[in-house]
Design a protein around this nucleic acid. Structure first.
Lengths: 244, 244
DNA sequence: ATAGTATGATTGTCGGACAATATGGCCATC
DNA sequence: GATGGCCATATTGTCCGACAATCATACTAT
């Protein structure tokens, strides 16, 4: 073992302050929904200048550990939701030049087990959400924009019904990244819309019956079908995903 | 449609500045590795005070879009790596009281297809990394700490070999979260160590042969085996994941 | 070529200041 | 009692100026 010296760990004040506050949030000393003390009070408590506190708060804000309620002044502790996490991941994917194909492959991996789990863990409420998503898709099918949103909501409803709270968090960035490609597909291939509707209905029915295998298989087919649609529309899957 | 008014979108200066810079990074005007202008220069360019620039920089730093090279002063543009993303996600999972079981279920979903993809997309370099990981695990098997690290590196090598750059990013937080539980398992059930070694070797061999189905099946068995280990050791899977 | 030194640039931290706005209490009106 | 107007105060957003510590660089001496 080479005994190369590690660089001395030193963090500037704003980082240490942010770390302290973050630790209090993570260990639940500061509960979600509570509001933080004012900047001035924090400054006196930590014995530092207000500027430093403000820099620390910006870090925490960007980490989605604190946020401002709309139109209010004080910062409150929040827990990062799927949408926020997704935004961060989307940025990372974009900077890594991840391609549409790679994102799609992940969905091919995630969605069938998600549907299966949803069939097993379904409740009246989650099932209704799925049914509503399916109905909403049918209703908005005509308009490309609404159709794309409907597809997203369908997948979200499935993930939400799976009973696994990690799944929605991991799925969300993928969905966000695909909306652009999906929009092109749905715009260019009208027959796809009907196929999507049918597949959604089958999956929904299978989940309603608690038939996990069937739901999984239909979902696998559904996702594969999307990919064929991409190829049919000559959507180049190897292009980097957009960062919009 | 109810026509409830949206709140007027207004962002304080530091947020707008951060947004501007982030946009420049995402559209590659500022390339990865480049260093940002000094705070003073940014302040004059944006026509605002240095304090505001600093707050914006803290946001970007926390978003892992910029970072300081170790021991240096200037901030450079970086692209968030798996480890950074993982930390953020770990925080989120912890705050959502995600359980070990949920994390483990996600690995059960992700890993078998990952192994299959690795068998299909393997290269000399990626295969070597897997082989080295397997060898390192065997070598360090005795010591619980090194064994846990070895398991993590094995999974990372697989994901890296899959040719899908999304996979490592999604897998990393799961691995980080499981190290605690894995440590307990490996400490408590010595025979598990040998089983892990054997499974790793089988999977590695299957990937080396380009046999995707075999790799997938062995990986599925491997992951399931972990879960049995958890149950055998009476590790309560429904406890929230730690936030270490 | 390497080590030391001087110089300038940049960051980390501080203090104070002020305008704009949210908060909360008080009062009048219905 | 609920509602809306009004005011004092607290808090945030933004600015300015300052200074020590540290990094980058050029220059010098060995």
């Amino acid at each position: 073992m080479s005994a190369a010296f590690e660089p001395l760990p030193f963090a500037p004040g704003y980082r240490r302050v942010a770390g302290e506050i973050a630790a209090r949030i993570l260990d639940r000393t500061l509960k979600v929904g509570e509001s933080l003390p004012s900047e001035l009070e924090l400054a006196t408590q930590f014995g530092v200048n207000r500027s430093m506190i403000r820099e620390a708060l910006r870090e925490l804000e960007s980490a989605d550990l604190i946020a401002r309620r709309r139109g209010t002044k004080r910062l409150v502790v929040v827990r990062p939701a799927a949408a926020q996490i997704a935004g961060r991941l989307r940025q990372a994917f974009a900077l890594h030049d991840v391609t549409v194909r790679e994102v799609w492959e992940m969905l091919e991996v995630l969605e069938p087990p998600a549907a299966q789990a949803a069939a097993a863990a379904r409740t009246a409420a989650t099932l209704r959400r799925i049914e509503e998503a399916v109905a909403a898709y049918r209703a908005g099918q005509r308009e490309a924009r609404r159709a794309v949103d409907g597809v997203g909501e369908f997948f979200r409803a499935i993930a939400g019904a799976s009973g696994n709270r990690v799944l929605p968090l991991m799925q969300e960035p993928l969905l966000q990244l695909l909306t652009a490609a999906l929009g092109v597909l749905i715009e260019a291939a009208p027959p796809a819309r009907e196929r999507i509707a049918v597949a959604q209905e089958r999956i929904c029915a299978a989940i309603g019956d608690g038939n996990g295998e069937l739901a999984r298989d239909w979902m696998a087919k559904h996702v594969r079908d999307f990919r064929r649609g991409f190829e049919f529309c000559r959507i180049e899957l190897n292009t980097p995903v957009p960062f919009g």
